[in-house]
Design a protein around this nucleic acid. Structure first.
Lengths: 215, 215
DNA sequence: GCGGAACCGTACCGTACGGTACGCCTGCGG
DNA sequence: CCGCAGGCGTACCGTACGGTACGGTTCCGC
C-alpha cells in the first residue's frame, strides 16, 4: 500500500497514541530490539490488539515513525517583507532547528531504525524519515531562498543547489558521526556549540550566496 | 577487547579472506540479514570453522567490516611545494575520493551495518567505520590545510572547522539520503554529477577559506 | 439486566537462527 | 602405512520472537 505522508491528529486514537509512545520509548531505549511482547507489556495492552491495530511488526514500526516524524514542526517565516536582517535570522532559525533536531535522541533513533530497515530492501521508513526531515526542510527553505533571490538578497542559479549547500554547511559530519555512535561527539558536547555553529554556517552560506556585502 | 584499528595484510589467511569476502558479498546482497549458515554455505566452509576463527557472529561481522574498511586507501599529496593550483587539485581529489566512496554499494552497506549495530549499544563497528572513513580523511586533509595556511594560501582559525566545513560542502545530504534508501538519488544519478559537484564544493571551500582571490 | 464488542493477559505454536557436536574426508609428518 | 590435525557437511539443541488462540473482564447500547 502507498503510505500516506501526512498524518492528521485523528489518525490514531489517544489509546493508540499511548501505545505508539510506548513503542517509541522502547525504540529509544533498546535500539532496534523492539519486540511486540515488550511493547504490549509497556503499553499494558495485549499483543492481539497490537496486531489488530497495526497489522504486523512492520506496521507498528511504520506507525510509530510516521506518528513521531509528523510531530516535527517547522517554523513559518514571513517572506513578504524580507530584509537582509530577516533573511539572516530566518536562516539561523532553520539551522538551529535542523541541528537541534538531528542531535536529539529521538531523531537518532528514528534515523537508525529507518536505515536498518533500508538495509532490508524496505524503504518505507526511510521515505517517511526523509519526507519529514530533509525534504520538509527543503520545502520550507526553498521558497524563502527564492524570495530572497527575487529581493536581490541572494544570488544562485539553482535553489536546489543552494539548499543542499546550506544543509551541508549546517550538518557537516555531525549526523553521520552521531548515527555511528561516535563517543567523541556527545549530544551535550554538540549542544553547547549550537549557537556558534548556527552563526558560522549562516555566515558561510551568505558569504557564498549573498548578493553583495551581506556579511 | 580493544579492537586494533590497523589491519595488516597478514591478519587473515587467504582462506579467511575468502570467507570474509563471502560475508561481505552477502552483506551487500541481503542487507543485515547475514546468517552464519549463509556465510558457511557461500564460503563452502563449516559453521564450526567460522566460530573457531571468529568467535561468534559479532566477531565475524567485525572482522568483515575491519578488513574491508582497511582496504580504502587515501591518496598522498605532496605538500612540500604547494601552489594554489596544486592545492585546488588536491582538494578536488579528496572531494572526488570522498564522494565516490560514500556512494559505493560497499560503503553504504558498511555504514548501514555499523549504524544498525550502534543502535544496539555496540559501537565497535561504528568506530571502525568512522576511523577508516571520516577520520581517515581528516587525518590526511588537515596537514594539507595547515600547510596551505602556512603557505598563505588559506586562512582559518581552526583546521578542524575548516576540515568539517569541507566535509559538509562535499557530502551535503547525499550520504544520509543514500543510507535512508532515497529512490530519487541512485548511484548512477549521483555518479554523473560527481565532477561538477567536486568542482563546486572545492570552489566554495576556497571562496570561504582562500587567502585572497583563489577563485 | 443482557448481549456483544473491545480488549487484556497469557498460553501456545512455528520458525529462524546462533551456537555445538559429531562423523567423515584429506593431507601431512613420521 | 598410521595417526592425527584441520576442516567440511550436517544434524541437532535452545531460545527468542513473530504471530495466533482463547478465556476472562469491562463497558456500552438496548
Amino acid at each position: 500500500m502507498a503510505l500516506p505522508i501526512k498524518i492528521s491528529e485523528e489518525t490514531f486514537t489517544p489509546r493508540q497514541q499511548a501505545v505508539l509512545t510506548a513503542a517509541l520509548d522502547l525504540l529509544v531505549e533498546n535500539g532496534d530490539g523492539l519486540t511486540m511482547t515488550a511493547v504490549a507489556r509497556r503499553a499494558s495492552c495485549s499483543k492481539e490488539t497490537l496486531y489488530k491495530w497495526f497489522g504486523d511488526r512492520d506496521g507498528l514500526l511504520t506507525a510509530t515513525v510516521q506518528w513521531q516524524a509528523a510531530k516535527v514542526r517547522m517554523p513559518t517565516v514571513d517572506r513578504s517583507h524580507l530584509s537582509a536582517k530577516v533573511l539572516r535570522e530566518s536562516l539561523q532559525q532553520f539551522a538551529r532547528d535542523l541541528l537541534t533536531t538531528i542531535i536529539g535522541e529521538v531523531s537518532i533513533t528514528l534515523n537508525r531504525t529507518a536505515i536498518t530497515h533500508a538495509a532490508q530492501e524496505k524503504d518505507s521508513l526511510g521515505n517517511i524519515v526523509l519526507e519529514n526531515g530533509p525534504m520538509a526542510i527543503r520545502r520550507r527553505l526553498k521558497p524563502i531562498l527564492e524570495a530572497a533571490r527575487d529581493a536581490r538578497l541572494l544570488r544562485f542559479p539553482s535553489s536546489e543547489d543552494a539548499y543542499r549547500c546550506f544543509f551541508g554547511l549546517v550538518v557537516r559530519d555531525v549526523q553521520i558521526r552521531l548515527l555511528l555512535g561516535d563517543k567523541g561527539l556527545t549530544q551535550s558536547n554538540v549542544e553547547a556549540n549550537i549557537e556558534a555553529d548556527v552563526v558560522a554556517a549562516t555566515d558561510q552560506f551568505l558569504a557564498l550566496y549573498g548578493a553583495k556585502a551581506n556579511l
